[in-house]
Structure formats: C-alpha cells, structure tokens
Design a protein around this nucleic acid. Structure first.
Length: 269
DNA sequence: CTGGCGCGC
DNA sequence: GCGCGCCAG
C-alpha cells in the first residue's frame, strides 16, 4: 500500500467513526424521547384523546392522531405542549415521509406537489423542538393538511404562536387540531387529498386542576382579523365534525366547559 | 415562525 | 433523488 492509499483508508475510518458515533447519539436520544412520550401519555395525552369517527387512532411519541382514510389526512391530531417543550433550538427541516403506522396507507407527499397548497402541519414542527427526533417526527404525511399559503403563514401561524405563548404562560396546554372534514370536498393529487374549508383548534389548560377550555374555528382563507373573533364553543366544533372532545371529564364539568365561548380566562394581550 | 422551488451533483 | 440556497407571507 502506498502512502496515498494509506491516507485514504485512514480518512475513511475517521468518517466511519463519526457516522457511528452520530448514530449512537440518535439512538440514545430516541430512547429518551420514548420515555418522555410514555410519561406524557400516562398523564394527560391519552387521557384527553377525542373519539375517532373513523376508527384509526395512531400514536407517535410526540403526538397522537386519528386518520381519515377517505380524506387522506387526520381528522384530529392531539398532543400536550408543555412549558418544558418550548425551545429555541433550530433543526433543519427534513423531507416528509409516509406514516407507516397508518395501516390503510397515509397519503404520499407528491399529492401536494404543484397543487398550489402548502403541506400544512397539524402538530407544528415549532411545538416539537425539544429534540431532533420529536421535530422530525412531525414531518409525516399523516400530520399535514392542504393549506393555502397565505392562511398557513398568516392567521394560522399566528394562532400557533399564540398557543406557544399560552403554553409558557399557563405551564402547558393540551392541543387538539385538524381540518373540518366533510363529504364531497375539493381534492388534490392522485390520492385525492381533501382540502378543508375550515380548520379548528381546541385548547385545554388542566394545569391547576381547574380546567379551562378555548376553541377556535377558522375559515380556510387569509384573514387580518384578531384571533378572538374566531373563538367558538367546543359544542360548535363537535356538531361540525362529529368528534367528541374531553369525554373523559365529569359530565357536568364537560357540558359547562364545552358550551362556553367565553375567552375571558385566556390572555390575548 | 409558516412554507415552496430551482438548481446541481 | 437528495442537499442546498434563495424566495415569499
């Protein structure tokens, strides 16, 4: 072996070592997040899951979802955004992948290609920045819905940022979000991914044992209106979607909370 | 922050 | 096909 070849071999071994070490770190980090995920589920995540109208609930480490095969997207995505989840770390956005946990087959990202619609996150990447694993896990096609860019980057983004603000202020909030799925909707792509006309977000703060709820229903269009103008009661969203939220609560409490469209307990600044 | 897209290897 | 850099709201 001449000198040049020897250097090449050494360089290759160094690269291999770096790769193996990074892989080891990923696995270790993943194991830790699995633990965090299980802890969340034994607390409030599983406890507050809504009903599924399509019978296909899928659990990931950072969020759970109910997949509607006819609409090729989730009817709801649920997760807890804890104060400790808030992070300023900045991960590179990975490519979207098909969610293998959806047994009927989640949509391919190609349906969105050149459709004119964003691949709009339901569980935002910005809410799962406490680890690279949790962040990258939001880039599954079961976690997106077709959204107009001006809606996604506008009022919807504003609402997502408000949720992060509340998660910090109230030491964590429970989040359920999705598009309102109906029959005969406009679709995109070969798999006919439905384009919702409305999106909703339901929040609960269960931090001090005295739960408070707020719900938003937004038309799928650009808006400059203040967010509080989109507050509705949970009952309104249940009527529209057929989903039952917070059925785990005591009926008396549930009925009272879900009938209210008051937002006096939520700071809009 | 929320995203798309074109280019080049 | 994937990574990178640039673009918009």
């Amino acid at each position: 072996m001449n000198k040049k070849n020897l250097y090449s071999v050494i360089a290759a071994l160094i690269l291999l070592g770096v790769f193996a070490y990074n892989h080891f770190l990923d696995e270790k980090e993943k194991a830790e997040i699995v633990e965090i995920g299980n802890t969340i589920k034994t607390n409030t995540n599983e406890y507050f899951l809504p009903t599924s109208t399509h019978g296909q609930i899928v659990h990931h480490e950072g969020y759970s979802l109910s997949y509607s095969e006819p609409h090729e997207q989730a009817e709801w995505v649920a997760y807890e955004l804890k104060k400790a989840h808030l992070s300023s770390s900045n991960f590179k956005r990975p490519y979207f992948e098909i969610d293998d946990a959806v047994k009927t087959g989640a949509a391919h990202w190609r349906n969105y290609k050149q459709s004119g619609f964003d691949k709009g996150h339901l569980c935002p990447a910005g809410d799962r920045r406490y680890s690279k694993f949790a962040h990258d896990e939001t880039f599954l096609t079961s976690n997106i819905s077709p959204q107009e860019h001006e809606f996604n980057a506008g009022i919807w983004n504003k609402l997502e940022q408000k949720v992060r603000y509340w998660a910090g202020k109230y030491d964590g909030v429970f989040v359920i979000t999705g598009g309102v799925l109906k029959d005969a909707m406009k679709t995109i792509g070969a798999e006919q991914v439905a384009v919702p006309n409305m999106f909703y977000k339901v929040l609960m703060d269960y931090n001090n044992g005295d739960p408070k709820i707020i719900a938003f229903l937004l038309p799928h269009e650009k808006s400059n209106k203040p967010l509080y103008e989109f507050v509705v009661s949970v009952d309104v969203i249940e009527d529209l979607t057929g989903i039952d939220f917070f059925s785990q609560l005591d009926d008396g409490i549930e009925n009272k909370l879900e009938a209210s469209s008051s937002y006096k307990n939520w700071s809009f600044n």
